[in-house]
Design a protein around this nucleic acid. Structure first.
Length: 570
RNA sequence: GUGCCCGUAGCUCAGCUGGAUAGAGCGUCGGCCUCCGGAGCCGAAGGUCAGAGGUUCGAAUCCUCUCGGGCACGCCA
């Protein structure tokens, strides 16, 4: 991994500030003095407001500082022009040597371009989805799956070592309820009247499992099964469906952790004992309480109820105890926003168990709604009807589903617009990005067929040949992928990637289309042969960045797009 | 009532830890098919950044309050 152009500029900036400031340097807010993209293209390729930030601590007028900084930057070989601007900015234009740095980095790093080392190989345990094995997954799980998986990819790219884990809630009252529901369904298949009271999970899926399970079996054998047997059977089938649904989205976990196994290994009772011996609990009103208030919780929480059974908090703490014993540097949980009250008590327990709870981060994802035909699709958990994840993925496809699930920040609710997601005849953003990639690929293919006709250029000559403003704009945009990755990892936010890719695709499509009205922009045209190698380097860099970015989202970067023909729509 | 999140174009949403004239997609309207792929491109219309104060050279961004909307506040999971 090489140094990004921005790193080089920022390093130079710090050196220049050091010369200007002398012994005042150590007291300056140098961290804030960085280069960024100016909003107006006429302000150059990079700009910094460092003079405005430093004017007060240095006691010098901002424009004077800007002028002296610009003079210093003029000496840099990667800078073509440096200009002070009022009230106190420095605007830079890169030289061909500067562009070559960017294009070379992309070419040599290939699929690794965009990776950074901020993670320093720290180990991260990322837990997400963890859907109960009591039924199929819905739209919300789909968002969690897409976001969690993409986050894992981003963290890997940022230099972390990530383990993806799915926690199976296969113990406790709900799993018994599942067994009872499934048993009632099976008995109904044998001819018994359906015991509506026993059916606590009303969806049709259990009836379908029952049909399959009962088929060809001796009814007496079926009747002899215990609730636990039915529970285990239904759990397994649900889990199979969950894995299938995840696979359809291309999401695979490194580890599935069963709650039941924690019980079987006595980890749950041992955890309770640990909490007791740590003095983190007390008895009141026949119940055992955990002191969570000391950790920012509103009130203390019950661990063991008056009836002697434990609350769900205990196995969850056992699970986290087990997580921490495996020795990761960072633990990230993706929860639904309806669990917002949960993290404080989790932290309290983790601390009481002797772990550093500050290593646990809980990310809260808000709801997602499905709209079709401009109408929000209604669903109700109670009635057992919901928007199934498998239906969404089947209808929109994995790529489009992921795109829309990732394109919004986690803490905003959003509408998954099925009409837009399935729109292949108009401007669906995911297709636009994939199309830009496919477009470059076919062009490269064509270029390779006439490679012998093209002159050879070294990278600096190539960069110097790219003189059009839009070509520079693309290069500068390409250079940003590493910082987008770094920022995404740091903020634990996935939506910057699609935003970035969309703007890059639009930039490229605009550039590509310029050849239609202005023949001098036709990359492979015979009369432009002298420029072709340079432009092909740019094209290659662009498709590389598009592909790397799509990979961070788990979306394919196709070599060609197969047009979907819709004859029936006249 | 308390805590968290949200409020930016007709709609869905970005806005990079405070920077220069407020952004994208979709939708609407108007253009562009002898073309390295039209699943594309160009242009136009569209904004009191919910509101009011404050912080400072400078605020959509940070602080306070108000108004709207969502979620959470169990010996449920």
């Amino acid at each position: 991994m090489s140094e990004s152009i921005k790193d080089i500029l920022n390093k130079t900036l710090v050196e220049i500030i050091g010369e200007l400031a002398g012994d005042k340097f150590s007291s300056l807010p140098v961290d804030r003095c960085v280069f960024g993209p100016p909003k107006q293209p006429e302000h150059g390729d990079f700009a910094t407001s460092a003079p405005l930030i430093l004017t007060k601590p240095l006691g010098q007028p901002p424009f004077d500082l800007a002028t002296r900084m610009a003079e210093a930057f003029e000496k840099s070989p990667i800078v073509a022009r440096a200009e002070p601007a009022r009230p106190g900015f420095v605007n830079l234009q890169l030289s061909p040597a500067g562009w070559a740095v960017i294009l070379d980095a992309i070419a040599t790093e290939g699929e690794n371009f965009g990776t950074v080392t901020t993670g320093a190989s720290r180990r991260v345990l990322l837990e997400f989805v963890s859907a109960n094995p009591t039924g199929p997954m819905h739209l919300g799980h789909c968002r969690h799956a897409a976001v969690g998986d993409s986050l894992a990819r981003i963290f890997s790219a940022a230099g972390y070592e990530v383990t993806k884990e799915f926690y199976i809630n296969d113990a406790g009252v709900q799993i018994i309820a599942l067994g009872e529901s499934f048993r009632a369904r099976c008995l109904a298949k044998l001819g018994d009247p359906l015991d509506l009271e026993a059916v606590q999970y009303p969806g049709e899926y259990l009836a379908e499992f029952a049909e399959d399970f009962v088929a060809g079996k001796d009814p007496a054998l079926v009747r002899s099964h215990t609730v636990e047997d039915f529970s285990t059977e239904a759990r397994g089938r649900n889990l199979d469906v969950i894995r299938q649904d995840l696979a359809a989205l291309g999401v695979f976990f490194d580890h599935y952790q069963s709650e039941k196994e924690l019980h079987d290994a006595n980890l749950v009772t041992r955890t309770l004992e640990s909490l007791e011996s740590a003095g983190a609990v007390y008895e009141k009103d026949d119940a055992l309480w955990l002191r969570t208030e000391d950790f920012g919780d509103d009130k203390d929480r019950v661990l063991r109820k008056g009836d002697g059974t434990v609350t769900y908090l205990v196995p969850d703490l056992a699970y986290h105890h087990y997580k921490f014993e495996r020795g990761f540097d960072l633990y990230i949980n993706l929860f639904g926003a309806d669990h917002a009250g949960y993290p404080p008590r989790l932290r309290a327990g983790i601390n009481a168990l002797g772990h550093d709870a500050s290593k646990l981060e809980v990310l809260l994802l808000r709801l997602v709604f499905l709209t079709k035909g401009g109408q929000r699709v209604k669903f109700s958990k109670r009635a057992g009807n919901f928007v199934a994840m498998s239906d969404v993925v089947a209808e929109a496809g994995s790529d489009a589903t992921r795109w829309f699930m990732l394109a919004r920040s986690m803490d905003s609710e959003f509408e998954f617009d099925m009409d837009l997601a399935t729109d292949s005849s108009s401007n669906n953003p995911v297709y636009k990005v994939q199309y830009a990639h496919a477009r470059v690929m076919t062009m490269m293919q064509k270029a390779s067929e006439e490679a012998a006709l093209l002159p050879e250029l070294d990278s600096k000559e190539a960069a110097a040949a790219l003189t059009a403003p839009i070509e520079k704009e693309i290069i500068v945009h390409l250079s940003k992928l590493p910082e987008i990755v770094e920022r995404s990892a740091q903020e634990r936010a996935v939506h910057h990637i699609p935003n970035y890719l969309l703007s890059l695709a639009e930039l490229w499509n605009r550039y590509y289309s310029m050849g239609k009205t202005d023949p001098s922009f036709r990359i492979l045209a015979e009369e432009n042969r002298a420029l072709a190698p340079a432009r092909l380097r740019l094209a290659d860099a662009t498709r590389r960045v598009l592909a790397n970015g799509l990979a961070l989202m788990g979306i394919s970067a196709p070599d060609s797009m197969t047009r979907q023909v819709s004859d029936e729509d006249e």
